[in-house]
Write a protein that binds this DNA or RNA. Structure first.
Length: 460
RNA sequence: GGGGCUGUAGCUCAGCCGGAUAGAGCGACGGUUUCCUAAACCGUAGGUCGUGGGUUCGAGUCCCGCCAGCCCCGCCA
């Protein structure tokens, strides 16, 4: 997995958490590309250069596999014979050829183990349902389209011509559902997926709302696929089907994110670097402040803050625009960053540790138990009351950055309050009220960050 | 040629169904620590919201044209 997989994973996870919180039953499906031409390319190439990889588990390691894939892709783009062989391989795979299937299974297992490690590290819960899942339904898709009178055979390929869309030549744009060689492609799989999700169980998921979290570059593709699905009558009345696009991840320089040597950045390396930078920062701070903390604390804080920073930076900007990745910005200790929000939670935990009973002023004490006099207190109350609206908004607009913006503002208002209004040293009545505000703020921040997939800390 | 997305302060971005003097953060400059973690707080400077029209009592927001950047457009995903 590389940095390109970061956004769909993080954004999709946050949206799923919000929808679940709102009581929606969510099916978190990982639509992995485990079935198309890329496997044809890879298998064809491996047959020639490393056949052992096709019948023995872990015969080559994943890094080499990625390199082999890159070579295969190059050959595919340059060599027509290779292209044809690779396409035939896809047809064999989709037809259930046992040798192809075994090779495919081994390759998928290997990459699945890598995904799983990253998902566990990032606390992402996904059900895998890759493109291969829809293989048994591909022919039915074509048959349905045929029956609906939408199918046209053009240059040997079965297509549906799209309304209101045209290609470079000005002619209507086809959506190809079966290639001239008999193979199915991305569009077919996506149509099968839509058909399956809206279909009533047990032959489908019975969904009423289907959300696709993919990069914005696929907007045209989804517009076409959605159009065909509607015309085929697969979308029930009142059901919601939408593409939730996001922009590209770019480097600090505004260009595509790459390593110094020009390779794509591996997600694991990126997460490691975030954690390492946090650790260095934390150690420097501990030294400066002459604090003593054990190794476990350092690791725990660096890991939590580092991963939180990566997630939060991604989620805090409007997902539609391209996203400029910068360790310096996301790990900054001030501003709209994960460390800033986590620090607000830590400050409240500090008050509790120093003897503040955060359970004070519970609702059972009656409304007269709370009394506010300072503008900073009222500002905090007003901010806390916005939570419901914000979450409902995120649910409708599917924009996690709205939640981030709210949590940041809440943290700012809290920090002002913390700075200017004493809590523990206040008179009993005020102290009780202020402790209640602290508790509500901490609960709100923890809830909000939790919806973004970010855990909090007691100390940092 | 067609389509999509984007264009708001030096930089990174908010701005939700059109509503009052356009908001943050970073960076810059200047302050605050006998007190709950200063990873904080307070203040100053900085914007003809790409551009030209239109709709409206009112436009960063809606409509049309233009300019710039990125992405997509027949058998990749």
């Amino acid at each position: 997995m590389h940095v390109g997989h970061l956004r769909s994973t993080i954004i999709g996870d946050a949206l799923a958490r919000v929808l679940e919180f709102r009581g929606q039953p969510v099916l978190r499906l990982n639509h992995v590309g485990d079935w198309g031409t890329q496997f044809g390319m890879l298998i064809t190439h491996l047959k020639q250069v490393a056949p052992e990889a096709l019948n023995t588990a872990d015969a080559v390691d994943l890094g080499d596999l990625v390199a082999f894939y890159r070579q295969a892709k190059q050959r595919f783009d340059a060599d027509e014979d290779f292209q044809n062989t690779a396409r035939q391989e896809v047809v064999r795979l989709q037809a259930g050829d046992p040798v192809s299937l075994q090779a495919w299974g081994l390759l998928c297992d290997q990459s699945r183990r890598e995904f799983q490690q990253l998902y566990e590290r990032l606390d992402i819960r996904l059900s895998e349902r890759g493109e291969s899942f829809y293989n048994p339904y591909l022919e039915a898709v074509v048959a349905d389209l045929e029956a609906a009178g939408l199918l046209v055979v053009d240059a040997g390929a079965k297509c549906v011509f799209l309304e209101g869309m045209q290609g470079k030549d000005g002619n209507p744009l086809p959506l190809i559902v079966q290639k001239s060689d008999g193979g199915f492609n991305y569009a077919t799989t996506d149509l099968a997926a839509i058909r399956y999700r809206f279909a009533a169980p047990p032959a489908g998921d019975g969904a009423r709302w289907v959300i696709y979290v993919t990069d914005a570059g696929q907007a045209n593709h989804f517009a076409g696929v959605f159009q065909v699905a509607r015309r085929a009558g697969w979308i029930p009345e009142g059901a919601r089907l939408e593409h939730v696009p996001f922009g590209l991840v770019q480097g600090d320089d505004g260009k595509k994110l790459k390593t110094r040597s020009g390779d794509t950045v591996r997600l694991k390396d990126l997460l490691d670097e975030a954690v390492e930078r946090c650790e260095a920062d934390l150690r420097r701070r501990l030294a400066d402040e002459e604090r003593q903390e054990d190794e476990e604390f350092v690791q725990q804080v660096a890991t939590t803050v580092g991963l939180a920073a990566v997630k939060y930076a991604d989620l805090s900007t409007n997902r539609i625009t391209n996203y400029q990745f910068s360790f310096d910005r996301m790990l900054a200790l001030q501003g709209n960053t994960a460390p800033y929000l986590l620090y607000a939670v830590v400050r409240i935990a500090g008050i509790a540790r120093k003897g503040g009973d955060l359970g004070a002023g519970e609702a059972t004490d009656g409304p007269e138990a709370l009394q506010f006099s300072e503008p900073q207190e009222w500002a905090l109350v007003r901010e806390l009351l916005k939570l419901d609206t914000v979450i409902a908004e995120v649910e409708q607009e599917l924009l996690p950055n709205r939640l981030c913006g709210y949590l940041f503002e809440l943290s700012q208002v809290f920090n002002r309050f913390y700075d200017q209004v004493p809590v523990l040293k206040a008179e009993p009545a005020a102290r009780r009220s202020r402790l209640a505000l602290c508790r509500l703020t901490a609960d709100t921040l923890k809830l909000g960050l939790g919806l973004l997939g970010i855990p909090t800390l007691e100390r940092m």
